[in-house]
Write a protein that binds this DNA or RNA. Structure first.
Lengths: 198, 198
DNA sequence: CAATAATTTTAATTCGGATTAAAATAATGC
DNA sequence: GCATTATTTTAATCCGAATTAAAATTATTG
């Protein structure tokens, strides 16, 4: 979509690499993924990856940065387009799941934040916290505007984010399942939020 | 509770070790956890762990086996004690969360199944699948008895299990938070399941 | 097409944590 | 207290995957 035509080959390859890496990390786990696994998907040698990235740690870091971007963009869009708090929640879920299960390829589960080097770890943690805080703010807005039943926004946020973050664990690219996820999940996760019409 | 008085010192130490390992794996990630980290918690040397376990892979395997047991027991109990499907779901969530956040110590997130050796991996996957299937059966029972609104049980199960599996990622032993989790989560995750009273 | 830059490979090297063997210490039974 | 067994440590070793440097290939540009 918002893709510069002038994207250099280097950037394109790097992007392919990040998607390949995310897929490996999600499917084989971090320690189970060697640089050879990632490079093999690209038809390259492991050493070639070092043209794009300083080391394996940076590869993980970039995957997580990308995951953060995707989540933030989904939430941005939901907030921009949503009306009530509940509507915004549902849009966010749909948009985020759409990307997670769609063409932009697998999004890395942030399972290995602690093994990032301190500066990177802190940055990713901060991004992660900010995202949660923004989501909780949407829940609060929904409670205020009456579209969401009063609840503990921290716990509710944790629950929903958990369900979302776990998706890449069991979803492996089956298009039919992708449709199901996108169509079912928002309802499942938000049904409990609906303010009772009584 | 159901603890044999005759539990040998070896068994006790091994159990402490598995809890320490689960804590490390959850907090530092698998690759970020060295055997030194685990042994340090126990006040031992890394080499001492080999008295209890063949290698690091077996340590992970045993953690996952333990996690599987805990989940199964919670579901067993919920099924035994619950009446309607919905009631069983809520009990299961409460029982499972109780253990996850309670004295029996951290339960390992199964993030690294793929790096287990084939026989172990297959066994853990089978346990995991069986658990999901049993949970889905509870959902179906609830739909049949009218306590749960019709839904895609596979997706609903995935959503709930995801939220549950993610708990150890952000819960780190704070007792006050533990109470919140146990008291809020079952409602949050099951509210959407309630058959509409209309 | 020549020349320069971009990309990838080949072939080492390095390095940290897993693993092992043997020795040392602590516990237990007689 | 002595002998035996259980548990832990010390001190190497090992091993594989990450990393590096230099060479080879491929693309680009004037």
């Amino acid at each position: 979509m918002a893709r510069k035509a002038s994207e250099t080959r280097w950037e394109l390859q790097k992007d392919r690499m990040l998607r390949a890496a995310a897929r490996c990390f999600n499917e084989k786990g971090y320690s189970g993924t060697s640089l050879k696994d990632v490079s093999a998907i690209l038809g390259l040698t492991d050493a070639a990856l070092y043209y794009y990235v300083r080391n394996k740690e940076e590869l993980v870091y970039l995957c997580y940065l990308r995951a953060g971007d995707v989540g933030r963009e989904a939430l941005d869009r939901a907030i921009a387009e949503g009306d009530s708090g509940l509507d915004t929640v549902r849009r966010y879920l749909r948009y985020h799941l759409d990307v997670m299960t769609g063409e932009r390829g697998p999004i890395a589960i942030m399972s290995e934040i602690p093994s990032l080097e301190p500066a990177h770890r802190d940055e990713i943690l901060e991004i992660s916290r900010r995202h949660s805080a923004r989501f909780e703010a949407v829940l609060e807005k929904g409670i205020a505007d009456g579209s969401i039943a009063p609840c503990d926004v921290r716990m509710t946020g944790n629950a929903i984010m958990g369900a979302l973050n776990w998706v890449p664990k069991w979803f492996h690219g089956d298009a039919a399942v992708a449709d199901q996820v996108v169509s079912e999940f928002p309802a499942i996760l938000s049904a409990g939020l609906v303010a009772s019409g009584l």
